[in-house]
Design a protein around this nucleic acid. Structure first.
Lengths: 210, 210
DNA sequence: CAATTTATAGCACCGAATGCCAAAATGGAA
DNA sequence: TTCCATTTTGGCATTCGGTGCTATAAATTG
């Protein structure tokens, strides 16, 4: 958990002192995802990952808090971007429009990242252990959205209104992601956009058919 | 998992042969929830639960597949009821109305059940391990709703439309439940009703304020 | 070279969960 | 009653994820 100062955004470069890390989060993630992809998540032990990276089991847990976390990569960063987008939006723009555009914007990925992302999302939406863990990660996402909604309509983020919007929005985003991961459409942002437009219309049956 | 024939709904009573069970699922659940409530979920080990019931650790796992499952009680039965309600609805009634009424109906509980339900929901929505596991259970709920939506608008349950509706609906239901469990409103069905009405209006900002 | 800093390896340990097998308890039939 | 089939239980061994503690290895600085 206590990552090195190098990872911090501020402070002087501060030349590395002490023993050099034997690997990196990226390295560990690559090795782990490769194993997950080849032999399955449950069939891969932490010992195997550690061995593949050339590091001890104990050291693996210094890079990631758990085996599950590896699949999530740098999800935290995306969360910060979402919060910024929502905060900087014009108060004139309708709430659900702001939300849709913010989610779409935070989910733009380069062509080079899409393959790995699809592997990650495929795992997250199919392996029970990871489906389970996703609820914990997504809860943070919901907190951000609920905070934004409460700021718009008043009251606290814990009230029914903000909670319902946040969790329904999460559902729309998850639907878009899993559909994109399952089928071979390259258009992730398009799926997200469509899902949020359905959400904002209250799922009008006529438009749903279209 | 392989429960006794006694639990089956059909077949002759078939007088009990063989050794009699030392306890029951209800017994185990009571003892476990009591411990969870007093000393916390993570702080309660399976050994303690087993001891409280007067049974061995190994036997505990014959009544529940996991420690997590205890909190969920007979959730499966509710799922069946939801599926029936949705299937038996008139095709004239708007989709979102059917959905709202079905979810409200399957979540009516007697006054005597509400206290225990609140404890269960409080745990499910606050203990990380259980928050995580809820995603697995709720996935079955989503499958039911997605199947219903696909039947209404055409296509398969895996398509974006049904998936978005199902997951958003789940979000609304979860919001209602957690708000109800947190605050001291006795009106669970009212919360569910309100959440689904918000959902069906596309979260109109004006109504959200109300 | 010594001191300090940082990362690592390895060990012991806990708790959840599973497979396996022997033993206990029950009803029914010989 | 005795024996058998049936069902549940208990205990053991094992696997795996995760954590705390400690000693040691590798690096910079003086």
């Amino acid at each position: 958990m206590t990552r090195t100062a190098r990872h911090g955004a501020d402070g002087p470069p501060a030349v590395a002192r002490g023993r050099r890390p034997a690997t990196s989060r990226e390295n560990v993630a690559r090795a782990a995802l490769d194993l997950f992809n080849r032999q399955g998540y449950d069939e891969t032990t932490v010992d195997e990952i550690a061995a593949a990276v050339g590091v001890s089991r104990r050291t693996f847990f210094r890079y990631y808090d758990s085996k599950r976390e590896v699949v999530w990569g740098e999800f935290d960063a995306e969360l910060v971007r979402l919060e910024e987008k929502l905060a900087s939006a014009s108060t004139d723009e309708p709430m659900m429009d702001v939300l849709r555009r913010a989610v779409v914007a935070t989910n733009r990925f380069g062509a080079g990242e899409l393959d790995e992302l699809r592997i990650r999302m495929g795992l997250i939406s199919s392996v029970p252990t990871l489906v389970a863990h996703s609820a914990v990660r997504y809860a943070e996402w919901c907190d951000v959205v609920a905070g934004f909604v409460a700021g718009r309509i008043g009251g606290t983020p814990d009230d029914l209104g903000p909670q319902t919007v946040a969790r329904a929005a999460l559902g729309a985003a998850m639907a878009a992601f899993t559909c994109w991961a399952r089928y071979d459409t390259d258009d992730l942002t398009g799926e997200v956009d469509r899902a949020f437009r359905l959400l904002a219309t209250g799922f009008d049956e006529v438009r749903l058919r279209g």
